[in-house]
């Protein structure tokens, strides 16, 4: 039986950081099965978790001083809540894993403690009917597990609530910025091509001189949608994320325009383009954050998309038309 430490090593801290900023998270797993923390015996509680190592580690680092079993389900390397939503942290996997790990012969009781957020995937009555094990839903946060067990497996209402404080939102922003910035080189290339393109060919000097302000505005739109919107989420008015992203975008773009004195120098068509396109991009990127929050439901996001997508397409088309008119004017065609 593997015994796990309740300390996180320096190397693991670094791995946790990598999970927060890159695709490293997709292969950060532990082997499903039964583990021991402390010196558990046949009367010790069994805590169930996912095989995403970041989830497993957030549980085991809270287990100092406890003697418990940890049953790790095969959730394909996904955290408890997401896996429960998809059903991989689910009744069937739990039932199979209880058998495969022979939990029934390791402990003399029939109790399991599941993380509360496993609820969407696990039906407690199905598990009890099939295996005889009774499921107690423990606290949302592993940090409350000591108190929960001490209280005789009773959670306070506060232990049952999911919050979404600033620090929780901030740790998610690198993985909002990351995919947005992956698109940035394409945006930059198109911008430089657009400004460099002249009847004589592609002029490098024009590409840079004309394109630079827009490369800057592109960065601002990404930061506004992927960082400012999540960070300032409760303080930006309105509940729709597309609206929040747009508000963050229009303010950021306006401030950038004022600070760089671009207002006075920019062609009216390009100015209109900037004020339409970049807040729109910020809105779209901000809307993506719905996938990372702890409180957005599918029906609401569907409604946002139903209204949002036609608007995104329409104003993107308007943006392109403005650019074409500007270019034709520049070439003296119009």
């Amino acid at each position: 039986m593997p015994v796990v430490s309740t300390r996180i090593s320096r190397a693991e801290y670094w791995e946790h950081v990598r999970c927060r900023i890159s695709g490293f998270r997709h292969s950060y797993t532990v082997k499903p099965g039964l583990y021991a923390a402390g010196r558990p015996d046949e009367r010790s509680e069994v805590l169930v978790t996912a095989n995403y190592k970041l989830s497993f580690d957030s549980l085991r680092k809270e287990l100092g001083g406890l003697d418990v079993w940890i049953l790790v389900l095969d959730t394909k390397g996904i955290n408890v809540w997401c896996a429960a939503g998809k059903g991989t942290f689910g009744s069937d996997e739990l039932i199979n894993r209880l058998g495969a790990a022979q939990v029934g012969s390791v402990v003399a009781h029939k109790r399991l403690i599941l993380p509360q957020l496993g609820g969407p995937g696990v039906s407690s009555q199905k598990v009890r009917q099939t295996t005889g094990f009774s499921v107690s839903f423990g606290p949302v946060r592993a940090g409350d597990i000591h108190e929960y067990i001490k209280a005789g497996c009773k959670a306070t209402p506060e232990m049952r609530r999911v919050h979404f404080p600033l620090v929780d939102r901030l740790v998610l922003t690198p993985m909002e910025l990351n995919p947005a910035f992956k698109m940035y080189p394409w945006f930059a290339l198109l911008t430089l091509l657009f400004f460099g393109l002249q009847p004589q060919g592609i002029i490098f000097r024009d590409a840079l001189a004309g394109g630079l302000p827009f490369l800057l505005l592109g960065v601002i739109a990404i930061i506004s949608g992927a960082f400012l919107t999540p960070a300032l989420l409760p303080f930006i008015p309105f509940r729709a994320f597309a609206v929040k992203g747009w508000i963050a975008g229009i303010i950021s773009v306006s401030l950038a325009m004022q600070m760089t004195a671009l207002h006075g120098h920019m062609d009216a068509l390009l100015l209109a383009f900037s004020y339409i396109f970049f807040p729109l991009a910020s809105s779209y990127i901000g809307l993506q954050f719905t996938g990372s929050t702890t409180f957005t439901g599918m029906t609401g996001v569907k409604k946002e998309l139903g209204i949002g997508i036609p608007l995104y397409l329409f104003f993107s088309a308007v943006s392109v038309i403005l650019l074409i008119v500007y270019k034709l004017g520049q070439w003296g065609v119009l």
């Binding site: 809540w81 429960a84 939503g85 509360q116 957020l117 609820g119 969407p120 995937g121 696990v122 039906s123 407690s124 009555q125 994320f241 809307l287 993506q288 719905t290 996938g291 990372s292 929050t293 702890t294 409180f295 957005t296 439901g297 599918m298 029906t299 609401g300 996001v301 569907k302 946002e304 998309l305 997508i309």
Partner: peptide, 29 residues
């Protein structure tokens, strides 16, 4: 309510109903 479906999954009496799913724009798109 965020429509996670935990209540429906655990109601043995069919007293709850929700259109369960991910509230995630990227997933829906």
């Amino acid at each position: 309510c965020m429509e996670c479906g935990a209540c429906v999954q655990n109601c043995a009496f069919g007293a709850l109903k929700v259109d369960k799913g991910v509230g995630c724009a990227a997933a829906l798109i």
